[in-house]
Simulated scan of single mutants.
Amino acid sequence: MPWQVLWLVLWFMVTGLAGWAGLRLCGWEPKFFWSQLVSFTPYAAALSLVPVGCAAFLRARPLLVAALVVAGAFAVTVLPRAVPERNPPAAGPVLRVLAVNLLHSSVPPSALVEAVERDRPDVLHLLEFTNRMRERVEALGLARLLPYEIVLPGTESEGAAIYSRYPLRPSDTPIAAPVFRKSPRHLPAVVTLPGGREVEVVAVHACAPSEGWRTACWASSIRALPPAGERPRILAGDFNSTLDHAVLRDLIATGYRDAADVTGKGLSMTWPYYEQPRLFPKVAIDHVLADRRIAIRSFRTQRLPRTDHRATLTELVLP
């Protein structure tokens, strides 16, 4: 390739990536495919290093300066996710939360119950939870492991459930109904810990940020989630949003911290895995948001069979 053509290609890359970084930094989200494309910002950040290296090799100083500025803009938004943060002082009860999107309840019930037996969560969030799945997991002993439950009936993607080791009751926190029928729904509940301490949990399942009518459903389903408040609150599940979406960052800014981000695992991707090529790019759309007064001791993702999401397991210490 002639050097002039390579030079033009590199300038084209830098210009396009500069536009990407600019949109991401300003938080403006146009109503077309940007709500999907911005999820891949970590990959764009990695790509931004290519013109830096090429410009350095070619000794093209103006191009190198421009490429470094763009790469720096991406670094500001992406690199902090890989750096652990300090926790607030917290000496209260420890709570382990496992959240799983079951892909229309396709996960084998035995695999789910085995995961609960192995990981010993105190609270279990189940999304895309059908009545048939409920019958099967309870027959296998889930209710023995986690005897308290609140179930939101539904078919395919609509249903949700929270199972708990400790007493559980419905929450009176208002959450707006979905904009459209046949949409996922959030499920809030209050867990009463030994000693009477209460913490609110919300099993989160937002609409997907698709084009057309689902764009409105997606944004409104995130905005419907409650901000951090007086009672400690934990939101866990499928947000269908990444830390590169302004609507999710706005929710976090009300007084939450993202567990993956806090533990330096903010680049742990969670979707899509099932029936996808190994090299298909993945994004981080499953989150655990905890009140900023709560210490986040650990966070990890893990595989369950026949679901396109990674489950999240988080250990938290209440204030």
Rank of each mutant, 00 (worst) to 15 (best):
V5I: 14
L8R: 12
L8T: 14
V9D: 02
M13S: 10
G16Q: 01
A21R: 00
L23V: 07
E29K: 00
F33M: 13
L37Q: 07
L37G: 06
S39I: 00
P42D: 05
P51N: 09
G53T: 01
A55F: 08
L58W: 13
L58Y: 09
R61K: 07
L63N: 01
V69W: 06
V70S: 09
V70Y: 07
G72S: 01
R81G: 12
R86E: 15
N87E: 14
P89D: 11
A91R: 02
L98K: 00
A111R: 10
V113I: 09
E117G: 13
R120G: 00
E128L: 05
M133H: 03
V137R: 03
L145S: 10
E149T: 14
L152T: 02
L152F: 04
E156S: 10
Y163G: 07
Y166G: 08
S171E: 12
D172H: 08
R181P: 07
R185P: 10
V199T: 08
P209L: 10
R214F: 10
A216E: 15
S221D: 13
A224G: 11
P227D: 12
A228L: 09
G229F: 03
R233A: 02
L235M: 03
D238F: 04
D238H: 10
S241T: 10
V247F: 07
D250F: 00
L251W: 05
G255H: 09
A259Y: 01
T263I: 02
K265T: 01
K265I: 01
Y273W: 15
Q276C: 00
R278A: 13
L279F: 15
L279T: 15
P281V: 12
K282M: 08
V283W: 06
A284C: 13
V288F: 05
I294H: 02
I296N: 03
R300W: 08
T301S: 11
R306Y: 09
T307D: 01
D308G: 13
E315N: 10
